[in-house]
Structure formats: structure tokens, C-alpha cells
């Protein structure tokens, strides 16, 4: 793993690789992030509205609940878990396949630090790009709640807008982005490690991929708890 951060042979090579990875890992995930966020925002809005049918709770509370759920937990943690599945399995199987078909040996023969060449750009790309995905997800989640909440008639225009702006703490977004950065590192590095040390054939590539996703997901949940403790409490 240390070699992933070793001195690069040619800087230009790395820069090109980072953009390549941003494109394939980041842009490629926009669709799934968008769909999940809109629907989750909608579901959270309708469910919360349904549960808050008490005269003691002000109607704008639905907006507050949706906003805080999306920003604090859903976008950074759940979307990261989904990305761990999507990006993680593709990273592990790509690198694992390169290992078992000797493409990694071929890189080494050409004097390339294969761990650095393959893994480092993926880590950088995901640490830089995942926060963008997460902000995108927060935005779409809240928007989805608005659109579907109005359509279902469970919130009014005024209440919802009041709710999502009520006592808004910008620090929550920063907290979410810090979490996202840590998760992004896990999402790229753990599956890459499992892929890189694959031994055997196609079956083992599949196993590395599963292992990479499972370990990454568990680590994300563990760090979610730790970071919440450290940053919020």
C-alpha cells in the first residue's frame, strides 16, 4: 500500500490518469446518485409528514427533518456505501484482472511502479470527485422531497422552504464533506488493495471484488460512527 504513494516516474502520466479515473469513476456515477437521491428525498418527506401528524409539531419540521437527514447522514454515508458497491467492485475487478493476466507484471517490466500508477490516481480522483457527487446528492434529495412532497400534498410550498432554511448550520455541510473525503479514500483504497493482491484466476478476481466491497462498507460504517462522535458531539 505504501508503494501507492511512492515517487511517480512521470508526472504527466499521473495527471492524465487522474482525469481518466475522474471521468470513469465520477461522471459514471452521476446517474445512480441522482436517481437514489431524488427518491430517498421524496420517501423521507412523505414518511416524515405521515409521522408528524401531531398538532404539537410545527408543519415546517418536515423540511428540517429532510434537510438534516440528507445532509448529515443520507448523502455522505448511504450514498458512499452505494458508491463503495459500484466503484469499489469495478476498481477491485479491474486491478484484479490486470494482476491475474500479468498486466501488472508487464507494467513493472517497463519500470513502472504499478501500485502507484494504478491505485494513486483512483484515490485522488475519488477523494476529489466524491464530494461533488455528495453535494449533488444533497441538492437533489431536498429537491426530490419538495417536488414529491407537493405532489403528494403532504407539505405546502411555504412550510417546506421555511423548514429547509430554518436554523441552517453551514458546519453540517462541512462535516458531511469531511466524512465524504474519508469514505472516498476507503472506497478507492480498500478494493484496490484486494484487487492488487489477487492470486489465481477469474474466480479469485470475483472474490477480491466481493471482499473489497464488504471490507470497504464495514470500514465506512465504522468511520461514520467514529467521525460523528468526534465532529458532532
Amino acid at each position: 500500500m505504501k508503494r501507492a504513494f511512492g515517487k511517480p516516474e512521470k508526472l504527466s502520466l499521473y495527471r492524465a490518469r487522474i482525469f481518466e479515473e475522474m471521468y470513469s469513476l465520477g461522471i459514471g456515477s452521476l446517474g445512480i446518485v441522482a436517481i437514489i437521491s431524488v427518491f430517498m428525498g421524496a420517501v423521507i418527506t412523505i414518511q416524515t409528514a405521515f409521522n408528524f401528524e401531531s398538532p404539537l409539531i410545527p408543519p415546517y419540521a418536515v423540511g428540517v427533518a429532510v434537510r438534516d437527514t440528507m445532509i448529515l447522514e443520507f448523502s455522505p454515508a448511504i450514498v458512499s456505501l452505494i458508491l463503495a458497491g459500484k466503484i469499489g467492485s469495478s476498481i477491485a475487478s479491474e486491478i484484479g484482472t490486470m494482476r491475474v493476466t500479468e498486466q501488472i507484471d508487464a507494467l513493472e517490466i517497463m519500470g513502472i511502479n504499478s501500485a502507484g500508477y494504478l491505485i494513486f490516481p483512483k484515490i485522488i480522483a475519488s477523494v476529489l470527485f466524491n464530494p461533488i457527487l455528495i453535494i449533488f446528492s444533497m441538492f437533489l434529495g431536498i429537491l426530490g422531497g419538495y417536488v414529491f412532497g407537493l405532489m403528494a400534498g403532504v407539505v405546502t410550498d411555504f412550510e417546506y422552504i421555511l423548514g429547509i432554511t430554518y436554523e441552517f448550520r453551514p458546519f453540517n455541510v462541512i462535516y458531511a464533506l469531511i466524512k465524504t473525503g474519508v469514505f472516498a479514500f476507503i472506497i478507492a483504497s480498500v478494493p484496490a488493495y484486494h484487487g492488487y493482491y489477487t492470486k489465481g484466476g477469474a474466480l479469485e478476481v470475483g472474490r477480491s471484488s466481493t471482499k473489497g466491497v464488504v471490507y470497504a462498507s464495514v470500514l465506512i460504517l465504522a468511520f461514520d460512527l467514529i467521525l460523528t462522535q468526534v465532529l458532532l458531539v
Partner: peptide, 16 residues
């Protein structure tokens, strides 16, 4: 030395 070495791998090991 690596510059002086060419290697042909069993499966070809071309970059996909």
C-alpha cells in the same frame, strides 16, 4: 536494466 529487457507474457498481457 529493465530498459534492456523485453518480455512476452504467457497470455500476452496487453493492456485491455
Amino acid at each position: 536494466i529493465r530498459k534492456e529487457i523485453g518480455m512476452l507474457f504467457q497470455g500476452g498481457a496487453l493492456f485491455d
